[in-house]
């Protein structure tokens, strides 16, 4: 049984005086216990909104949420705020992109962790403090006994992100959602955080949803990868299938357009033309059609469905031919 099952999730933002904006449209995927699932996409793809909707963090923001999010047989979307808060503290953890703004600047990091421990794991203040120090040690914060009484601004970006991970893990959640956890960090620090995350996840058998724009991160970390474009999933596959033979022209195009460290100098890039602002509405056809090299009339008139194809899920009328789909470098 899946740990988390997202069915037909949609998020529509409605604001007075503006047209309703569909950020997420019919997104379905599931996460098995202990599995690492990637949600990849560029800005505006709806990947972050998806995670916020799962966590119930969009409720008071004028968003209309449809579909269902089932976590261990509980429908999260219909829970009361209190029940959801409880669930969020206990079973679901989240790590955000900007560790500074996610931490309370006027409370010591120790207190921010013990607060969670006391509330959700019913620990006494003393126990919680011991456990907090242990957690901080576990996420690789040096000298946790001393650091526990410091404030967020006294830590570097990487250390703050570690603290955030410690808070998210404090209740031993079954699912951790990491939304661009390393985007604000330098590459060597990113490597530290990613290896920490994958280590913790495999040690504790926590499921992880990794949300990122960086295909490289996904390639090393995730079992299943969902590629999102314009609020919908356009391709889902196991990571080897996805990277070795990407079938959706968008995925394929992305892989062709990003410079790779292991490609020799001067190897040409094949960019995707246009920008996200060229998209058409999904109701009219395929949102990617204006930028797609494979687009034909049907792409401009008929929205493609997400269908099983070639051992994966694919939303495309004219996928990349299997022979061409082999991405360079994987040879």
């Amino acid at each position: 049984m899946a740990l988390l099952d997202v069915r037909d999730l949609s998020v529509v933002f409605k604001r007075k005086g503006t047209r309703p904006f569909t950020a997420v449209d019919g997104v379905s995927f599931s996460v098995e216990p202990g599995q690492t699932v990637g949600l990849v996409g560029e800005s505006g793809s709806g990947k972050s909104v998806t995670s916020l909707a799962i966590m119930g963090l969009l409720r008071k923001r004028g968003a209309e949420i449809g579909g269902s999010v089932t976590f261990e047989d509980t429908e999260l979307l219909t829970l009361s705020d209190k029940q959801l808060r409880d669930r969020r503290g206990r079973d679901l953890g989240m790590v955000f992109q900007d560790p500074l703004s996610s931490l309370n600047p006027v409370i010591t990091i120790g207190l921010q962790i013990t607060e969670v421990l006391e509330r959700h794991r019913g620990m006494s203040r003393k126990e919680a403090r011991v456990e907090a120090a242990e957690l901080l040690d576990r996420v690789g914060l040096p000298d946790p006994q001393r650091r526990i009484d410091e404030y967020p601004h006294q830590l570097s970006g990487g250390m703050r992100q570690r603290v955030l991970i410690a808070i998210a893990l404090a209740c031993r959640p079954k699912l951790l959602i990491a939304d661009e956890p390393t985007t604000a960090l330098d590459v060597t620090i990113q490597a530290q955080i990613l290896s920490l995350l994958s280590e913790l996840v495999s040690e504790t058998d926590t499921a992880l949803i990794m949300i990122t724009h960086d295909l490289g991160i996904v390639a090393g970390l995730c079992d299943d990868v969902n590629v999102m474009y314009g609020g919908r999933i356009v391709e889902r596959a196991q990571r080897h299938d996805l990277f070795d033979r990407s079938r959706h022209p968008y995925t394929h195009g992305l892989l062709q357009s990003i410079p790779r460290l292991d490609a020799p100098r001067g190897e040409p890039l094949t960019p995707i033309r246009g920008s996200v602002s060229d998209n058409i509405e999904w109701e009219q056809g395929c949102a990617f059609a204006p930028r797609c090299p494979n687009a034909t009339d049907v792409c401009w008139s008929e929205p493609p469905e997400l269908k099983a194809d070639d051992g994966r899920m694919l939303r495309c009328h004219n996928p990349v031919a299997i022979g061409d789909a082999v991405t360079e470098g994987a040879l």
């Binding site: 570097s156 250390m159 590459v187 060597t188 490597a191 530290q192 490289g216 390639a219 892989l255 790779r260």
Partner: peptide, 25 residues
């Protein structure tokens, strides 16, 4: 630095030997 850059290729990623730096700048 080179070992820390993720490559969008699972095969390369699986074999990559990372040199993790400790601490901050």
């Amino acid at each position: 630095l080179l070992s820390a850059v993720p490559v969008p290729d699972p095969t390369v990623e699986d074999e990559r030997e990372q040199i993790l730096l400790t601490g901050d700048l």
